[in-house]
Amino acid sequence: MAKKQTPIGTEFMKGLWDQNPVLKALLGLCPTLAVTTSAMNGVGMGVATTFVLVCASLLISLVRKAIPTQVRIASFIVVIATFVTIVDLEMKALFPAMSKSLGAFIPLIVVNCLILGRQEAFASKNNPFRSIVDAVGMGLGFTLTLTVLGAVRELLGNRTMFGFQVLPDAFEPWIVMILPAGAFLTLGFMLGAVNTITHRREQAAIATRRAASLTVKEA
């Protein structure tokens, strides 16, 4: 760890925007598209994934030096699968309604590439504290994205937001929004918006740099 470390705040914030797992890295799209028929489902899926991500990251980071590289993926998957099964069982026991609406997608968190990706790219190379910060940031970014996606689809496809009716009865719901096609359309628009903002920021940054270099030359 001779090289200078990234500030801990940056490590946390990167999951929210710069390396947002869904909007920038396009990881974990299967649950993203499948369960976000309502805002509440987005929150539920996000929290469940975050829990698994944080627990797995902490554990992997603690034992990272004891695991031989040849079997690291196998060990990671077993650890992840264990936490996913815990979430699945406890959710069925304590929140049966939520478990019913998320259905088969809780067990499928095991194969969410976001989680394995963070173990491979971060937790297996960093200390437990940094790993937890990274996992919470990533999990939060994932949860927020899924919630927004679910909220838009729920609003247009069902007139409601978090279960409360927002649009009047006169608005006939666009059923396509709660069908799989609606997930792709909404995610497409979100990606378009994110890319536009990123592009504008880059252009602005380039313009500032150019202006700065010009002033230097003139001086």
């Binding site: 099964t85 815990i86 069982l89 406890e90 069925k92 026991a93 049966p96």
Partner: peptide, 12 residues
């Protein structure tokens, strides 16, 4: 998992 299952199974 067996510990968790002991707790969750009756509830489920």
């Amino acid at each position: 998992l067996s510990l968790v299952n002991d707790h969750a199974a009756p509830l489920i």
